[in-house]
């Protein structure tokens, strides 16, 4: 399972970089979306894909019952990262919309007036 996920993560990263290197700012945002999803999936994969019991300790015991239990921390990390990524992406979408309105182009090559 881990190796399949690794390939998926790699494909997502490759797709996102490809999209970000396009000239259209809409594709740029799609690239950003893919990028944050790739990163989340990577955290999920790299911290070990275990199918196990929830790590809840019943009263009177010191460890959770059962042999294998899932690590809750990566899920907490990903949840936080999803929320942050969502907020930032919302901003990015509004930004490119405004940029499109102001510049009148969705071509990154036309957005060079501040470069030189």
């Amino acid at each position: 399972m881990g190796s399949v996920m690794a390939v998926v993560v790699g494909a997502l990263f490759a797709a996102s970089v490809y999209m970000m290197l396009r000239r259209s700012i809409v594709k740029l945002v799609i690239g950003l979306i893919l990028l944050s999803n790739a990163a989340n999936l990577l955290i999920f994969t790299v911290s070990g894909l275990t199918r196990g019991a929830p790590p809840l300790i019943p009263e009177g015991m010191t460890v959770p019952p059962g042999g294998a239990w899932a690590d809750p921390l990566p899920q907490a990390l990903i949840l936080t990262a999803i929320v942050i990524g969502f907020g930032v992406l919302a901003f990015a979408v509004v930004l490119i919309h405004r940029a499109y309105e102001v510049v009148g182009e969705d071509d990154m090559d036309q957005m060079r007036s501040t470069d030189s």
Partner: peptide, 9 residues
Amino acid sequence: MEGAVKYVT
């Protein structure tokens, strides 16, 4: 706006 697109990305 133009600067922000690069900065944000």
